[in-house]
Simulated assay, not measured.
Amino acid sequence: MPDTEPPQDPTQRYPRPEFPQQEQEHPGRTAPMDPPPDHGEDSYRGHGLLLDRKAVVTGGDSGIGRAVALAFAREGADVLLTFLPEEEREAEETARLVEQAGRRAVSVVCDIREERECRALVEKAVSEFGRIDVLVNNAAYQMSQPDGIAAISTSQFDRVVRTNLYGMFWLCKAALPHIPAGGSIINTTSVQAYKPSPHLLDYAMTKGAIVTFTQGLAQMLASDGIRVNAVAPGPVWTPLIPATMPDTTEFGKQSPLGRPAQPAEMAPAYVFLASPNASFITGEIMNATGGTPLP
């Protein structure tokens, strides 16, 4: 954000529901979304907080991942980002934004549901950068099922758990030998971890597990000088919403601020947790829920 920008009413800063009803096939694309998501393209201003850091951001092609990759680059970091084959064009745009900031962008196709691909991803990051200073476990899968548990198939359950939990576990395990003291891991959990929506039961379950994993791993790695934290977003306007939710017209209206967040509003939390300014913060969950009270 420009230093001279005047204070703004957070309830009015970005579009508020009702939004047009819109549907996309998973994993969704940014371009057709109405209103278009803001990743900080025209607003995020770096201050050298991550100068010459080497970062890995899973799910960096769009949404929160794109906003984090952009912010990290403008703070001085080189970024390796992952995407699925069908997300290649989205990933190209994120890479362009990173390079426009004067930093290296490495885009890697990776299905984090497969352990071998997670190991290969870490090897690629080390071969490109020599080390991993920041690992952001952001990639996730959800699919709304308004009919509840009876409608959640075993294949959906397996995909949600393997994407949201197995991938995070494997990446942390493989990356740790390459994260130096002073490095950090940042996981993406959710308001769903504390206030689960019945139609997102399987997704919410995994987000609760991410909270526990974050807090446990933080204690394990504290003596090594590696910090582990997580960000818990509330509703955020990303391609995952029209691709997985049956009704987009009132998305985010339930938050006390009366609207969903934009990806650009999530990125500063990740920057802070990755930066030296958070040197005494580990095992914490930074809630960015638009005012929804959490434990």
Rank of each mutant, 00 (worst) to 15 (best):
Ile64Ser: 07
Ala151Cys: 10
Val160His: 12
Ala139Ile: 00
Gly48Cys: 10
Asp147Gln: 15
Asp38Gly: 10
Ile64Lys: 02
Leu165Gln: 11
Gly60Pro: 03
Ile149Lys: 03
Glu86Tyr: 05
Leu81Ser: 15
Asn164Ser: 14
Ile132Lys: 03
Ser153Leu: 03
Cys118Val: 04
Leu70Phe: 09
Glu41Arg: 12
Met143Ile: 05
Arg45Cys: 12
Ala71His: 09
Pro37Arg: 12
Val57Arg: 01
Phe72Trp: 09
Leu84Tyr: 13
Leu135Thr: 06
Pro35Gly: 10
Pro85Arg: 09
Met143Pro: 03
Val136Phe: 14
Ala55Asn: 08
Lys54Gly: 01
Glu117Trp: 01
Ser155Trp: 07
Val126Cys: 14
Gly60Tyr: 01
Arg103Cys: 10
Asp42Phe: 09
Gly48Gln: 09
Ala31Pro: 01
Gly46Ala: 00
Arg113Phe: 08
Glu117Tyr: 01
Glu41Leu: 13
Val79Asp: 00
Asp133Arg: 06
Pro35Phe: 08
Arg89Gly: 13
Ala150Cys: 11
Asp61His: 02
Pro35Thr: 09
Gly102Val: 11
Phe72Val: 01
Ala140Gly: 15
Val161Asn: 12
Gly102His: 13
Tyr44Val: 13
Gly46Pro: 02
Pro36Ser: 12
Ala55Trp: 07
Arg159Cys: 07
Tyr44Ile: 14
Gly63Pro: 06
Gly40Thr: 03
Asp111Pro: 04
Val68Phe: 05
Met143Tyr: 02
Lys54Tyr: 03
Gly102Trp: 11
Gly46Asn: 04
Pro85Trp: 05
Ala31Cys: 05
Gln142Lys: 12
Ala77Met: 01
Pro32Asn: 07
Leu70Ile: 15
Ile64Cys: 01
Val106Pro: 00
Pro36Ala: 15
Glu88Lys: 14
Thr82Pro: 05
Leu50Pro: 00
Thr163Ser: 15
